[in-house]
Design a protein around this nucleic acid. Structure first.
Lengths: 214, 214
DNA sequence: TGATTACGGTACTTCTCGTACCTTAACTAG
DNA sequence: CTAGTTAAGGTACGAGAAGTACCGTAATCA
């Protein structure tokens, strides 16, 4: 029982330091986040899980919130290629479904908890915005990409190639979460955002007529 | 020095109870919210300010968050009549400016703090949504009103009279606050929301202004 | 090999939530 | 007017977590 490894107590066969220790701490923090959410992320628990103590944490991150954001960034390291279904409607719906899936997943809950806990701290929010799946900066780029393809196909007016337009659907989806606090947004809302707002906006309501809905 | 009234210690000349005491507590809570924000809203401080103690608070509200929401509702009891500038653009801009003004004011900061602290609790969010100035349900009704007038004037397509369309500008504005954490949104963003998203959406991009391509 | 860095262990202060218990004032019913 | 009930006020306490302070010691580096 000299090295009762696994979680918690670990007999210090060798004393970790630097990047190795930092990795272990972030790993532990990510686990705690996944299991207990942002509210359950306490410095003591993370330290225990990482087999170290609070000192090592506070030497690296000034407080639990910054640590939480750093740990989240490790969870959310996925890459995203914009969908290419052949139609703007299909692409847009796919983008929203991906976003909805992320936001309603445990990661989404963590993300929302962190955003809430950040309480408007610009630095932390900027850090979180770097997560492509969170509707951040990279997400906007993806929307512009598929908008560009739609313009090339003649499906959208060139004027629609605008950042504000590109971020609109995501903003509307996020709004559902922020203001309603629901665990997940039904698919009908996604199609409504696409058919009632996004498509009319990019292709014009006039001559072309509505989407599938009249 | 028998009754050292004002704030804090108040010699109990007469012991308040019921609605009178409740009012005093809410008043104190509202003051604390205004001065110290949501983070500074502690039960002890509120009790001290109200000249009572925590018991009286916990007998009425289960925790500090519910008390905070109740106190906020007292701060935000204003009525709102939709603007009527004669043009849809003017109305929309005025609506957004009002919202921006609210959100960037101390009240907006409190509101955002409460939304953050509510952390997705549907009940509390619903309660907060009852504040017309917060972009809540009443706000959506106002947008529909001015949209209706625009349709009557021929400024907007009848299809634009849709809740999802009506809530879009507010959602985009809120999005700026949520994702960027800025203290206030510049007016240029408001006009961009109106000119690049809202107006093209409700009046169609075709003949009126933007693209002739469909 | 000796100096420096930074981990690990532990204890501590501070804060705040939420609860418990008891005394006493205000109200209410008879 | 008195007795009984309800609800304030006072105070103390336990729990949980943040963040700080020291100190001995293992790892690394000059």
């Amino acid at each position: 029982m000299a090295r009762a490894g696994q979680e918690g107590r670990r007999a210090a066969a060798t004393r970790r330091r630097g990047a190795v220790l930092e990795d272990a701490i972030l790993q532990a923090a990510a686990e705690v986040l996944t299991e207990s959410g942002v509210a359950g992320l306490t410095m003591e628990e993370v330290a225990r899980r990482a087999g170290t103590n609070k000192n090592a944490l506070y030497r690296r991150w000034p407080n639990r919130l910054v640590l939480g954001v750093a740990a989240y960034r490790r969870l959310a390291a996925a890459e995203t290629a914009p969908p290419d279904t052949g139609s703007l409607r299909g692409d847009a719906l796919e983008m929203l479904r991906r976003a909805n899936s992320t936001w309603s997943s445990p990661y989404g809950e963590i993300l929302r908890g962190l955003i809430a806990a950040a309480d408007g701290t610009e630095e932390l929010l900027a850090e979180l915005r770097r997560d492509p799946r969170a509707g951040g900066d990279a997400c906007e780029a993806a929307w512009l990409t598929l908008l560009g393809r739609a313009v090339a196909r003649g499906e959208a007016a060139p004027e629609a190639l605008h950042p504000r337009v590109a971020s609109a659907p995501t903003a509307l989806l996020r709004n559902e979460y922020v203001t309603r606090g629901v665990p997940a947004v039904p698919d009908a809302v996604l199609t409504e955002i696409v058919d009632e707002v996004f498509l009319p906006l990019v292709r014009g309501r006039g001559p072309a007529g509505g989407a599938s809905a009249g």
